[in-house]
């Protein structure tokens, strides 16, 4: 009797799993082999930022008639991301675009994929140059640094804005942020009325960003603006200003997604949120991956035709998206990510 039960279970499993979906998938199976398949790996799945990138990627995949796989670790664990890259390698996809959470962890898996003849590129964040062929870069540090200062100056009254400003950064060793700070300092020279008084770390800790901003407001009563240049520091700094009742007196700006900062923008604590167009980033990544598979994007190329985005610049091994987006009270309603 037991044997019959077990056997029935096995047969049921076989038919339930084996038969159902394969009928619908069966017809497209031979086509799928010839089709270009691009796998897009975010740092973490289910985060608004990456979800909106994926929307743009899906748009490009539809236009190009290719199959898009969008999957990533829900925990943000790089080891999980490695498993996915290995799987895609075993499946023999055409190209893999990786936003590496930890370049050291993902590097070996990306090299394994390249060894199998799969085109590998990075997007959003970079890995070691020998692990990928191209990086799709969202914006140059210069654009971001200049964009932040210009937005702050505008919020404080234009070219002749005056007052003390401070930076709340991630960690003092964070490479991205330090690049931005360099360009913030360069751009500040254009606005002689703005004086940078302090640069404080928040170590990717929202509570620390909150208390650091509180301390800054106490230490510098003339403080008019705070650059909170990590997605974690930004809401922390905005909350500190809001709770101190200094909404409108101390301006906060930084990089974040519209949804994360929407309430602060609507309350007026924050007037400008800087970011690149995430949909376009996903879109460009898929365009670049397809061009890489087709062979139209190869070392030495200087331009890339990217569908609705027109021609994009390629400098060295980087495809540049370029152009930053400023979210304000007026336009933030149009963005939902």
């Amino acid at each position: 009797m037991k044997l019959v039960q077990v056997f029935a279970l096995g047969v049921a499993l076989f038919w339930a799993v084996g038969c159902g979906p394969s009928e619908s998938a069966g017809g497209s199976e031979p086509k799928a082999d010839a089709k270009v398949v691009v796998a897009l790996l975010p740092k973490k799945k289910g985060v608004p930022y990456f979800t909106s990138c994926a929307e743009g990627a899906a748009e490009a995949a539809k236009e190009l008639g290719i199959e898009l796989i969008y999957d990533g670790p829900t925990s943000g664990d790089a080891a999980e991301a490695v498993k996915l890259v290995d799987q895609w390698t075993a499946q023999g996809v055409s190209a893999i675009a990786v936003s590496p959470n930890d370049p050291d962890v993902l590097g070996p898996a990306m090299k394994r994929a390249r060894d199998q003849g799969i085109k590998v590129l990075t997007w959003d964040a970079d890995a070691a140059p020998d692990a990928r062929e191209f990086l799709v870069n969202q914006a140059t540090p210069e654009e971001i640094g200049f964009g932040l200062v210009d937005a702050m100056a505008k919020d404080l009254g234009g070219d002749d804005a005056t007052g003390e400003v401070a930076i709340v950064t991630a960690a003092l060793t964070a490479a991205n942020q330090n690049e931005w700070i360099k360009h913030i300092k360069t751009r500040l020279e254009k606005y002689p009325g703005l004086k940078l008084v302090a640069t404080k770390p928040s170590n990717e800790d929202q509570k620390l960003a909150f208390s650091v901003t509180q301390d800054l407001m106490k230490a510098y009563p003339g403080l008019k603006g705070v650059f909170a240049i990590s997605s974690v520091a930004f809401p922390g700094a905005a909350e500190a200003v809001k709770q101190a009742g200094k909404t409108g007196q101390v301006m906060v700006t930084g990089l974040s997604t519209p949804n994360d900062m929407r309430s602060y923008v609507e309350e007026g604590v924050v007037r400008s949120v800087i970011l690149w167009d995430t949909r376009d980033l996903g879109y460009l990544t898929i365009q670049a991956a397809k061009a890489l598979v087709d062979g139209t994007l190869k070392p030495g190329a200087t331009r890339l035709k990217a569908g609705r985005l027109g021609e994009k610049q390629v400098s060295g091994d980087q495809v540049m998206l370029g152009g930053i987006l400023v979210f304000t009270k007026e336009n933030i309603g149009q963005y939902d990510f």
């Binding site: 096995g10 047969v11 499993l13 076989f14 799993v17 084996g18 038969c19 979906p21 394969s22 998938a25 290995d86 799987q87 390698t89 075993a90 499946q91 023999g92 394994r112």
Partner: peptide
């Protein structure tokens, strides 16, 4: 065995030894 058979029906590449080596 049933599971692997089902996997083979759905996607023959999955049961390929080279893929399994990697996984």
């Amino acid at each position: 065995a049933a599971m692997l058979l089902a996997a083979w029906r759905l996607d023959p590449r999955f049961v390929h030894p080279r893929a399994q080596m990697l996984l």
